[in-house]
């Protein structure tokens, strides 16, 4: 393989092309650039460092073996990596719980495939900082925050959350709905300001 070790100034797009051509050093550079947030996400979901590493590496290896999985016209690589890592981690968690078939509960799984386009405020969202999102999440009332986190980071459906917490399903649905509405509004505000 040709060395591209001097490529750290390359764009992700260049590196993905090099990766498609089988240049393993491009994979290494991309991993150094983007693995940390993906690993943090997998660790948050899986609560196990070895498992989190494996899941993130599996995502990279999928891309290595099939570069067409990532389509640059649909969004940046980091966003793709995080989305695929989220799906793989939640699937893994559900597999361990014995609910191995992913609940077909919504748009997340095919999110990227259908994510066509940018609206005017999209670029504001792109620059959204992790700390801002964490703050927005922390501002939610604890019961709403818990419901949103159980759904998103533990892959539970609303009725599974009701079972887990012992709360009525209707209460959980309300918490998820209000929590997400509030989160969306406060992120919109932050996004606009940035």
């Amino acid at each position: 393989m040709a060395a591209i070790g001097d490529n750290t100034g390359s764009t992700d797009e260049d590196l993905v092309h090099a990766l498609a051509a089988g240049d393993v050093s491009a994979l290494e550079i991309l991993s150094e650039r983007h693995s940390r947030p993906a690993y943090s996400l997998a660790l948050r979901i899986l609560q196990d460092s070895g498992w989190a590493e494996e899941v993130v590496q599996d995502v990279w290896l999928k891309l290595w073996k099939n570069p067409a999985l990532y389509d640059a016209s649909r969004g940046d690589l980091r966003r793709w990596l995080l989305s695929v890592t989220h799906n793989a981690s939640v699937d893994g968690l559900r597999g361990r719980r014995g609910t191995s078939v992913r609940r077909d509960g919504g748009a997340v799984a095919l999110e990227l495939a259908r994510d066509t386009g940018e609206d005017p405020s999209e670029s504001a969202w792109k620059s959204l900082q992790a700390e801002r999102v964490q703050e927005a999440l922390a501002e939610l009332p604890p019961s709403q925050r818990q419901a949103v986190e159980l759904a998103y980071f533990e892959g539970l459906s609303q009725s599974e959350i009701a079972t887990r917490t012992g709360e009525p399903l209707g209460t959980i649905k309300t918490r998820v709905r209000l929590g997400l509405e509030k989160l969306k509004r406060s992120l919109e505000r932050v996004g606009m300001r940035q």
């Binding site: 966003r79 992790a130 964490q134 980071f153 969306k184 992120l187």
Partner: peptide
């Protein structure tokens, strides 16, 4: 836009 945002809302490791 929420899932990509939530993907960031985790402790940095």
């Amino acid at each position: 836009r929420l899932p990509p945002a939530l993907n960031l809302a985790v402790p940095d490791a």
